[in-house]
Design a protein around this nucleic acid. Sequence first.
RNA 1: GGGGCGGUGGCGAAAUGGCAGACGCAGCAGACUUAAAAUCUGUCGGGGGAAGCCCCGUGUGGGUUCGAAUCCCACCCGCCCUACCA
Length: 839
Amino acid sequence: MNDRYDPSIIESKWQQQWEADRLYQRDDASTAQKWYFLTMLPYPSGDLHTGHWYAMSPSDAGARYKRMNGYNVWLPIGFDAFGLPAENAAIKHGVHPHKWTLANIERMRGQLRKMGTMFDWEHEAISCLPGYYQWTEWFFRKFYDMGLAYREEAPVDFCPTCNTTLAREQVWGEDRHCERCGTPVEIRNLAQWKFRITAYADELLDRLDEIDWPERVKTMQRNWIGRSEGVEFEMTILGQEDLSFRVFTTRPDTTFGMSFAVLAPEHALVEQIATDEQEEAVRAYVDAAKRKSELDRQAEAGEKTGIFTGAYAINPVNGQPVPIWIADYVLMGYGTGAIMGVPAHDERDFAFARQYGIPTPIVIVPDEVYRAGEAAAWNEQAGWALPAAYALKEGGVMVNSGPFDGAPWPHSFDATATWLTAHAAGERKTNYRIRDWLISRQRMWGSPIPIIYCPTCGTVPVPYADLPVLLPEDAAFRPTGESPLKYHEAFRYVKCPTCGGDAERETDTMDTFLCSSWYQYAYVSPYWKAGEPLSPDDMPWDPALGQIWLPVDQYTGGIEHATMHLLYTRFFTKAMRDAGLVDFDEPMLRLFNQGMILGEDGEKMSKSRGNVVNPDEYVGKYGADVVRAFLMFIGPWEMGGPWNPRAIEGVQRFLQRVWALIVEASEPQGGIPTAGQIADLRRATHQTILKVTEDYENFKFNTMIAALMGFSNTLIEAKKTAVVGTAAWDEAISALLRMMAPAMPHISEELWARIGQPYSIHTQAWPAGDPALAREEVVEIAVQINGKVRDRLEIAADADQATIEAAALASERVQQWIGGKSVRKVIVVPGRMVNIVTG
RNA sequence: GGGGCGGUGGCGAAAUGGCAGACGCAGCAGACUUAAAAUCUGUCGGGGGAAGCCCCGUGUGGGUUCGAAUCCCACCCGCCCUACCA
């Protein structure tokens, strides 16, 4: 029998065995503590790539580790199966997206099985099947009833390549490009469906403090939500007291410093207030602003342009008139679309004032300056004062502000806010950067939006009992990328569910991020109530099972979803809670973001760079265990890093050595092992268990593998001695295999069987590390003189400080280095080192 | 412009206030072999020395400390996010 390590034989053998035994099937009856481990579901592009392996195999190891520690672990899998590539394939090859998608899924299932994960295939969910998307539609309908879904005509981002609108979160980068295809987006005015995610802005922000997520993601979400507290108040127009506009500011304490006001070009008041002399120029500016693309506006960020309207507004705090300008640096979409210009205390206003020679009175000075009575020196003639002024908030004091002079931050905010509330129709207001989630997509391959437009009844939601609105199976795809639904008469022209008259169906479909916003719930009981009529009182999953498994305990996935999927699914959960579907607030309690696996050249893998690593090739050559362990060994999981085709051989050698260690007979050793040999072996075993356990807990897979390599090297040495066959030896081998099991499930199962242990290693208990056995008896201590190592001492590990100090000073070498100098100080760190400081 | 992460041998990296470079890759030398592959053994940050050893070394410059890759300040470089949000 050829007894070399041959993964091609053992891996498929055990994969079949596990599946036949339903080893990883979810256990709903267990009394053990449940652990819902979720890794972001893949898009069925057709091939599992290295990135999937990098995300999934450590996740699987983490889940398996938890299982061996007594948890009732569930690791489900499914496919995010709606989306553009399927539609593009349909246009190109004439194959229906449904067929293309399911063929890809079939192929990827095979690849995923070869990874040797503990995925529970019996609860697989595919988002493009009617049994799944009936619930995606049901959620839309539910949110519509709750007032969380609404339709609005507004300027929106449109990707000309994908031929659809996008959510604000899906427009990336400086050039505002489409997150999927990279094309810069255009702005279009369209009637689109939106979800009122802004209704949860506060909660989405505040509950970030409650979840164990990476700070990085939390920061990104905080910035994205962008809450700012301020005051909105009214300004009237000089000579036209019936006209007014409102401005929003976070710095009411600077109102006395207002030297102009600005309206956004789209502001409704613009036409009314422009004076006759200025009217033409204002109209030209507004027209130019309209024509300017988002890109142009970006390109000239910093450079300010604007036009004077000829009108003046009254600053409510001092009754002074200030010129009203139009400028495109003020955005209609944020706040009120109008601002007060305080150039001395706002960088943007300053740039604008500079451009047009507007005065910049200083109204806030540093506390020290005020107390020293030097506030007068801080005026706009002093060039140094202005740059120092605009960042002033904390530690600033109001000056040149009438009755408020001397008010410090934050009292200055409160006092002026109160005054503006009483005297300028003001109110405290919180503004957010986050916008409502635009969910309409002008594409066919997504969940239909269950809405019917009736000339008589208006917008009518599809009745719950009529869900789901099914996608047609005979859609004709157009090379232009236009949605076939628009041209599908049977789909589009329907009777109104209310009046029975002729009506039209909404032909836009929903953003596929809706599908993934609730997939962790869909896994609980996939395709729940498929084929049955639905009602508003339904649950989208079996509530008894949901009680057991929800919410997700550990989530893993890439950082790229920080302000998309991870925000949307949090919103969904809060809306679901308010609909009475769940009784918790957050969908995923812990999150870990793995890094990105790069090509050999250290660059992102891409076909155009030609640096794509095909995992199948390496799995064929080395086996899944080697590929898994190698990906974990590369470096810290959160860091990612380049693929190195040579380094993988080191991991292969490691597994081959472990194989030989256990399978090959040892040279018979005469004699009996010494107590010291046994103690050394057990110490190595328990030290490794403690280290490896800690590393699995913290997802530090790279040092976990390194520790196992070190331990196996120790055992290979020990195999040459008489310890082989002792209880300590058996303990070591058993522990080694169980520690390898989560990361390298096949080889450990095979070797476990070969040493005669009961199937399966994956249902065994995790080895317990004993700190007493792991403790060193004798340690080497470095002796430093003035911080430089001059000697090393072997000393009992439990020696006290005095003993260590005496031993160090007794050393001849140490005395030589001290020379005649006096010892000023001796620092002893037990078990580590001594530092002798001489004078 | 703002925010975040990072910079350690030829390479991937350990070490997060206590002996820098664990573990692995590559390299070098050797064993086995007719030879090669595979495997095994040794070596492997730089400089000096016959050697015991000594000096230098974690992007750069300062600082705190008995002691700094680790903490603080300033700067340089790389990557990611964000961008006129009042």
